[in-house]
Each structure stands twice: as C-alpha cells, then as structure tokens.
Design a protein around this nucleic acid. Structure first.
Length: 313
DNA sequence: AAGACGAAAGTGGTTGA
DNA sequence: TCAACAACTTTCGTCTT
C-alpha cells in the first residue's frame, strides 16, 4: 500500500553507499558523479552540470555573460526573433501609461503588426507553419524534423512554387519530402491521411518540389520501412535483425528491383517472424505495411525460394 | 473457423516511340 | 500523347491446419 516504496529511485534519494553503507557521500559536480568517500564507489554518473561555465563576480557581470533567450525556430514565420509589444498599457514597472504615451504605443503596435506580416511571403508562412506543426504532431515526427520541413517549405516559397497550388498540398509535399530524405519510411498514404490533400495532388506537388529544389533522392529501400513496421507489429528486435539479413541477401541477388519496397519489406518481415517463431498473419502485416496479402504472398514465395529459406519451423 | 493459397480481372504508374 | 507493360489490388473460391 505504500506508494513511496514503488517510486523509482532518483539521484537525490541516494543517502547511503550500496557497498559499505557509509553516509559520507560527495557529489562531484565537475565530473558529474556521486562518490562514496569511504570506499570510493561511484554511485551515480553522467549527472548533468547545471552550472554556468563561466565565473561571475557581480550580478551585472553574470547578466552580461548570459547568452540565452528563447530558442530561434523556423516554425514561427519570423523565426521567433521579432520584438513583440505587449498589449497592456503599462510600463516595465507595471504603472499605467499617460494618455499621450498610450496613443504613441498604439501607433507603435499598429506598425509593428504591419511590419511583422509584411508581405504575401509572411502571410503564407503564418498559414503554412502551424499546418506543418499539426501534421508533424499527427505523424509523430520529431521537433527537428518539423523544423527541417519548414525550412524546405521556405525554400519552396522562395522559388514561387505556390502559384496555382494550394498551401496545404505544398505543405504535405514538404513533409513527405523531408520524411523521405531522412529515411523515416513514412508511406505516401500515411502523409495523405494526415492532411486534407488528395493523393494525386500530393504526388504532383512532391515531384515539382523535388525538381525545383534540385534534391536528388535515392529511391526508398525496403530496409527504411522495417523499423516502423516491426514496432507497429510489436515484434522483438530479433525479428528485425533477421529481416535485415534477409533484405541484405535479397538486394545482393537483385530480387528487389522494380518491386514496391513496402511489399518486399512486408514479405521479409513475414519470413523473419516465422523463422524466429514469432508468427504474424499475412493480414496483420498487410495492415501495417499497406500492401495486400496477395502481394506479401507473391514476394515472400519469391524470397523464400531464391534464398532457400524453410518456413516450416 | 481462421489462415493461406492462387486465379482472374481491374487499376494506376512508368517507359519508349 | 498514346499504347504496351509490369506491379499491384480486389475479389473470390478452394485448400489446410
């Protein structure tokens, strides 16, 4: 019943040495270790030194050395770098402003707004960037990836690719391109499903984008999809290792050319799962890989025959 | 009953004239 | 731009476990 007991031990909880039970412990902030002074056992390591790396003699001195602010980000149309003027009519100490000052601030705010979203470029971005963030969230993409996506989108804007195209479609294409470039193994349909954009429009935009930005993309390989599929199927890493082995052989023997990489990946996983004894049905694998059972069947027969793999065990 | 299998017909993308 | 083509899908009846 004691909740405190089940709580995972954190650094501050360690009060006794596990070796000699001494309470004479010392935290070495330079090395980031918690050391027992009696027997020398290191109880914790890899602790992060939160201190500044400079020495400060007066408070003003400290302020002058600090160089952090809010992080710059491509996800805000002005990269979060522009000044914002508070809407409250108070000065820095919280006192109300005089009426003449108030009208002055009103004018300043107005011009600030105009300067911030100054042209169609920025207006476009203020629409597109939240959409990128939204899609990224839906697809479970990392922060750095959405940042990269917005960078791609900015470049697309600079090349005037929006003319005659919807912002949403271009955003979706940017997301898909960034995913591909980083070998995330996201399928076209997944990206499609996270947006309001049709499949056809997306592929069209994607091609234009790729061409305009001069990005040479090596074709997707089956291996790129494996980690994502494996985790969706809840299969152990053992199966992943086996799958990679199968795929390596398959590429060597040129069994993969002209075939859909997702189909090959799905088939290899199907084989690997059986070999390892952690079976999944064709249906289950078909669902996560977005290919049909028939395709998995055709591919896995080919692979198993060519690589001489016995499935029945 | 569930899963695997394979035939047949249809669809969308690529290629080459 | 069009036809030919391979890969893939959908559908469905049959076989196996």
């Amino acid at each position: 019943m004691d909740v405190e007991e089940s709580r995972p031990e954190n650094v501050e909880d360690i009060v006794k040495c596990t070796e000699c039970s001494s309470r004479n412990l010392e935290r070495d902030t330079i090395r980031g270790e918690l050391v027992c002074n009696e027997c020398g056992l290191v109880l914790e390591e890899g602790d992060i030194d939160m201190g500044a790396e400079w020495r400060v003699f007066t408070p003003e001195h400290g302020d002058s050395l600090a160089r952090t602010g809010a992080p710059s980000t491509y996800l805000l149309h002005d990269k979060g770098l522009s000044t914002s003027i508070d809407w409250q009519n108070r000065d820095y100490s919280g006192k109300s402003l005089s009426s003449s000052n108030r009208s002055q601030y009103h004018r300043m705010r107005k011009w600030q707004q105009r300067a911030r979203v100054k042209d169609s470029f920025d207006r476009n971005l203020t629409q597109a960037l939240p959409e990128i963030a939204r899609i990224g969230d839906k697809l479970g993409l990392s922060r750095s990836l959405t940042e990269e996506t917005s960078l791609v989108y900015r470049k697309a804007l600079e090349k005037n690719l929006t003319r005659g195209r919807s912002i949403d479609a271009l955003v979706a294409a940017s997301v898909y391109l960034t995913c591909n470039r980083n070998k995330l193994g996201r399928t076209l349909d997944e990206v499609c499903g996270a947006t309001r954009v049709g499949r056809k429009e997306l592929t069209k935009c994607y091609k234009v984008l790729k061409h305009a930005l001069g990005i040479r993309m090596d074709v997707n390989h089956p291996v790129d999809f494996v980690p994502s599929f494996i985790s969706k199927l809840g299969l152990p890493s053992e199966v992943m290792t086996k799958t990679f082995e199968i795929l390596r052989l398959a590429e060597e023997r040129e069994l993969t050319y002209g075939k859909s990489p997702t189909g090959i990946a799905a088939a290899a996983i199907y084989i690997a799962a059986h070999v390892v004894g952690n079976n999944r049905t064709q249906r289950e694998i078909a669902d996560v890989s977005h290919v049909t059972e028939v395709t998995i069947r055709n591919r896995y027969k080919e692979l198993a025959n060519a690589l001489d793999i016995n499935m029945h065990n």
